[in-house]
Deep mutational scan, measured.
Amino acid sequence: KKSYVLIKVKNPKTKETHTIVVPEENLEEVLKALASQPNVKVVDIERFP
């Protein structure tokens, strides 16, 4: 059974918020990819039960 993680990201320029759902096993690479985006800020990470 896969567990999923909900990542909320915000664009500081446009103030838009997006929610991305990723499998927990991919969380680290997704966070690394997001960290390299200049106008993306991770605001929240939630685990799915």
Rank of each mutant, 00 (worst) to 15 (best):
T14D: 03
S3K: 08
V40S: 06
I7V: 07
S36V: 08
P23S: 10
I7R: 00
F48L: 12
P12H: 15
R47I: 11
K8T: 09
A35D: 04
N11A: 02
N26Y: 13
K8I: 11
V30K: 03
T14H: 04
P12Y: 15
E46H: 13
P23Y: 13
E16Q: 11
H18T: 09
V42P: 01
I45F: 04
I45K: 01
T19V: 12
V30D: 00
E25T: 05
V9W: 15
V42N: 01
K8Y: 15
S36K: 12
L34E: 00
K15S: 11
E16Y: 12
L34Q: 00
P23Q: 09
K8V: 08
L31W: 02
V22I: 09
K2E: 07
E16R: 14
N11M: 05
P49N: 07
L27Y: 04
K13Q: 12
V5N: 01
N26V: 09
V30N: 01
P23D: 10
T14S: 06
T19Q: 06
E16G: 06
A33L: 14
N11V: 05
V30F: 13
T17N: 04
A33K: 10
E25D: 08
K1F: 13
V40T: 09
E16M: 11
N11K: 03
F48E: 04
E29R: 14
K15E: 10
T17V: 13
P49V: 11
I20P: 00
K13M: 13
L6W: 14
E25H: 07
L34T: 01
S36E: 08
T17K: 05
R47V: 08
N39P: 02
L6H: 07
E29D: 08
V5Y: 15
N26W: 13
E29C: 11
R47D: 04
K2Q: 10
P38Y: 04
K41N: 06
I45L: 04
T17S: 06
Y4P: 02
S36Q: 12
S36F: 09
I20M: 07
V40Q: 06
I45W: 09
V5R: 02
V21D: 01
Q37N: 13
E46D: 07
T17W: 13
A35W: 11
E29Q: 12
P12S: 15
R47F: 13
V22L: 03
P38T: 08
T14R: 04
N26I: 10
Q37D: 13
L6E: 02
P49M: 09
N11S: 04
K13F: 15
K2C: 10
E24S: 06
I20N: 00
N26S: 09
E24T: 08
Y4E: 01
E24N: 04
V22D: 00
K41T: 12
Q37H: 11
D44F: 15
K1I: 11
K1D: 08
Y4D: 01
I7Q: 00
P12M: 15
V9R: 00
D44P: 02
V40G: 03
I20H: 03
T17E: 09
A35T: 08
S3A: 13
I45S: 01
N39A: 05
L31R: 01
S3R: 13
K1M: 11
L6F: 13
D44R: 14
T14K: 04
E46A: 13
I45E: 01
P38K: 10
A35E: 08
E28K: 09
A35L: 14
N39G: 10
I20L: 12
K32D: 04
V30I: 08
V42L: 04
E16D: 07
E16T: 09
V21N: 03
F48T: 06
V43K: 03
K41H: 12
V42D: 01
L27K: 02
H18P: 00
E29L: 13
A35C: 06
R47S: 07
A35F: 13
E28V: 10
D44L: 14
K41D: 09
E24D: 05
Q37E: 06
V21W: 14
V21I: 12
L34S: 00
Q37A: 06
K13C: 10
K41F: 12
V42W: 02
V42C: 04
A33S: 09
V5A: 04
E29P: 04
H18A: 07
T17F: 12
K10W: 15
K10I: 14
I45Y: 05
P38M: 05
A33G: 06
L34H: 01
K8S: 06
P23W: 14
E16S: 07
K8W: 15
E46K: 13
K13T: 10
E24F: 10
P23R: 10
L6V: 07
A35Q: 09
R47E: 05
E16H: 12
N39I: 03
V22N: 00
T14W: 04
V21P: 02
I20Y: 15
I45P: 01
V21C: 14
K15D: 10
T19I: 12
N26M: 13
L34N: 00
S3V: 14
K2H: 11
L6P: 00
V22C: 07
K10C: 14
Q37K: 11
K10T: 11
Y4V: 03
H18V: 10
S3T: 12
I7N: 00
K15G: 15
I7W: 00
E29A: 12
V5S: 02
V40A: 07
L34C: 02
V30M: 10
K8F: 14
H18M: 12
N39C: 09
P49G: 08
L34Y: 04
L31M: 05
E28H: 11
P12D: 14
T19K: 05
N26H: 12
H18G: 05
N11D: 07
K8Q: 04
I7Y: 00
T17A: 04
N11T: 04
L31Q: 01
V5D: 00
F48K: 05
N39V: 03
A33F: 15
K13Y: 14
V40N: 04
T17M: 11
D44A: 14
K10M: 13
K1H: 11
H18N: 05
L27V: 05
K10R: 14
V42Y: 02
L34W: 03
E25K: 05
E24R: 06
I45A: 02
E25N: 05
K32S: 07
K41Y: 14
A35R: 14
L31K: 01
P23I: 08
P12I: 15
N11Y: 10
S3Q: 11
V5W: 15
S36I: 08
L31N: 00
I20G: 00
K10E: 12
V42G: 01
K32E: 06
V30W: 11
S36R: 14
S3E: 06
N11L: 05
L6Q: 04
E29M: 13
E25S: 07
A33T: 07
D44Q: 13
I7K: 00
E28L: 12
T14Q: 03
K41M: 14
E29W: 14
D44Y: 15
E28A: 12
H18F: 15
T19Y: 14
Y4R: 03
P23L: 14
V43N: 02
E16A: 08
L31S: 01
V22P: 00
E24P: 04
T17H: 07
